[in-house]
Design a protein around this nucleic acid. Sequence first.
DNA 1: TCCAAAACAGGAATGGTTATTGGTCGAGTA
DNA 2: TACTCGACCAATAACCATTCCTGTTTTGGA
Lengths: 150, 150
Amino acid sequence: MVEYLGRVMIGAPEGDIRDKFRRSGYTLTSQRRAVLDALEEAGGHPSTEDVYLIVKRKNPRVALGTVYQALAVLEEIGIITSKHWAETPTRYDLNLRPHLDIRCTGCGAVSEVPGVALGDLGAEIQHNTPYEVHNTTLVVEGLCPTCQRG
Amino acid sequence: MVEYLGRVMIGAPEGDIRDKFRRSGYTLTSQRRAVLDALEEAGGHPSTEDVYLIVKRKNPRVALGTVYQALAVLEEIGIITSKHWAETPTRYDLNLRPHLDIRCTGCGAVSEVPGVALGDLGAEIQHNTPYEVHNTTLVVEGLCPTCQRG
DNA sequence: TCCAAAACAGGAATGGTTATTGGTCGAGTA
DNA sequence: TACTCGACCAATAACCATTCCTGTTTTGGA
Ligand SMILES: [Mn+2]
Ligand SMILES: [Mn+2]
Ligand SMILES: [Zn+2]
Ligand SMILES: [Zn+2]
């Protein structure tokens, strides 16, 4: 569950995963493990369906609903994150750090955008609203190099 | 179709609306006009359903699909904008200027957050990705003052 | 006025996601 | 080891925002 992209480590270490399961009260079942492995195998930003197809290769008995449920649990206990783009299924990400993902409206590919300083937008927003700010996500869309040539 | 919030004008002037319809080739039908009026009457950030209910008060024959279609046209020709929060219906906005909206996860209310300088995030992102950046939206969620006391 | 194109009403269909239900598994206990 | 109880799971139905389809109506232009 640890993976390297260049010098950047993504994915929680095995110990952290066990800790988070233990502390949450959820159990690390074989299905949830399989979903986690599938996320790793998929790489990048798979949808629930993507994860489901990978999991099913090794265990054809797993149900799609179980994958939805497992991903919700993994997100709740802080092992993965999710992002939503309009009119497309939710994408999941092993990368827990705040970062920027862009989605190609042509082919649906999602890539990370390095080098953009987001500052502490959450704090700045909090200063300007009476709301209690819980979540700020930058949703970016565009055309990937391949689709620009389409 | 012009409205004032403090000193800030929102909503395109009548002339602009006609221009945009004429240039686009779409016709300004009574249903599309009714949808635009309903957006104004609703104020804020109504969903399609919200708009539909208002339109239906004056013309019970209008179909929900027509409202979806009309809103899509209005957005396409640049009279309104839309924003999407995860797991909730699309919200529409007469405010065409780039600005920040926060949604309460308790009651669903959407409010605008003034005073946050977004800079030109789009340009900065463009410098850091080979994608052709088309759209960057900041999606903010939290709890409104009322729901904080829940 | 007449015609072809665009728009509409009504309702069925779609697709991602969630809820329900009845059976299974497994960690803790005697 | 055998038992128990709750968490988990598979299967499937239900949900809900949105889109699609079909036949009808409206619209703007010849
Ligand atoms: Mn990412
Ligand atoms: Mn707004
Ligand atoms: Zn692409
Ligand atoms: Zn609220």
